[in-house]
């Protein structure tokens, strides 16, 4: 195999140690090796921006600041949306709360909800002749209403509301079509003290029932704890003729 003069020279030089020329080459190669290694290591280190040119850095900074500007705009927009949604929810919740409260109040007034609270239990005994009539019961109910009774129930079976009708029956009274007989138990929720006073004043309910003309007997019990339970409810009224007049 014929070998070239160049290759022979290379092999010869590699085998024979040092001339002056080789020392110079060695020094320069050492510089080259040193510089390359330093550069490679500097490149591998993480401070990526350190060696960058001014213009590149400026461009980078510009793009970063515009990106952050965009992000800030987006944040502001989203925050606005959030606050709008939140206030929407708040007002809706407030309206709902109001409606619910109103429904409760109206339910109590209309007698559609079972209620409980402090009040009085009035037991009315008829005389043996059966002189007690709806006049007296009605009188008692009116007195209780005057004194601020919020819910009234008779004999645990009829809730007294605005539409309640009373009539005389063959054996006692008929309240809203329900036949009741003595003794009547009227339960009323309200301020117990005021309710009792309203029945007891001179010439009032108690006196008229216990007087000569009727000869009945009334017992009033204030109940604060446990409270009076009114469990019966009235049928909700479905207005057929009455319509609300238009008003703001």
């Amino acid at each position: 195999m014929s070998s070239s003069p160049g290759r022979d020279r290379l092999v010869r030089t590699l085998k024979r140690p040092g001339s002056r020329g080789q020392a110079v080459v060695a020094a320069l190669l050492a510089v080259l090796g040193f510089a390359s290694v330093v550069q490679v290591q500097a490149n591998e280190r993480d401070n990526h921006y350190e060696g960058m040119r001014e213009e590149d850095l400026v461009q980078l900074l510009n793009s970063l600041s515009s990106a952050s500007q965009r992000a800030e705009n987006e944040i502001a927009e989203l925050e606005e949306t959030r606050s709008t949604l939140r206030s929407d929810t708040d007002s809706r919740q407030a309206i709902l709360e109001q409606a619910r409260e109103r429904a409760t109040v109206l339910g109590i007034i209309a007698g559609e909800l079972p209620v409980t609270g402090p009040g009085v239990v009035v037991t009315v005994e008829d005389s043996s002749e059966g002189n007690l009539g709806i006049d007296h019961i009605l009188n008692g109910i009116e007195e209780l209403r005057n004194a601020g009774a919020e819910a009234i129930e008779i004999n645990d079976s009829v809730r007294v509301v605005a539409q309640t009708a009373l009539e005389d029956g063959s054996e006692g009274i008929i309240v809203d079509g329900v036949q009741l007989s003595a003794p009547y138990t009227i339960e009323a929720i309200g301020d117990a003290h005021t309710l009792e006073r309203a029945l007891n004043f001179t010439g009032g309910f108690v006196q008229s029932v216990e007087g000569e003309a009727v000869g009945g007997d009334v017992r009033i019990r204030q109940v604060t704890s446990p409270s009076v339970e009114i469990a019966t409810t009235a049928e909700p009224l479905q207005p057929e003729y009455a319509e609300p007049t238009e008003s703001e």
Binding site: T13, L14, L29, L32, G33, F34, V37, V38, Q39
Partner: peptide, 30 residues
């Protein structure tokens, strides 16, 4: 022979010293 040794010495020196490249030199060194 010596030339190859010189290259090796330079690489080893660079690896051992791990010098920081001065900032003004950084764009030119590569």
């Amino acid at each position: 022979m010596i030339a190859g040794l010189g290259l090796l010495v330079g690489v080893i020196l660079g690896l051992m010293l791990q010098p920081e490249v001065p900032l003004w030199l950084e764009p030119y060194l590569p």
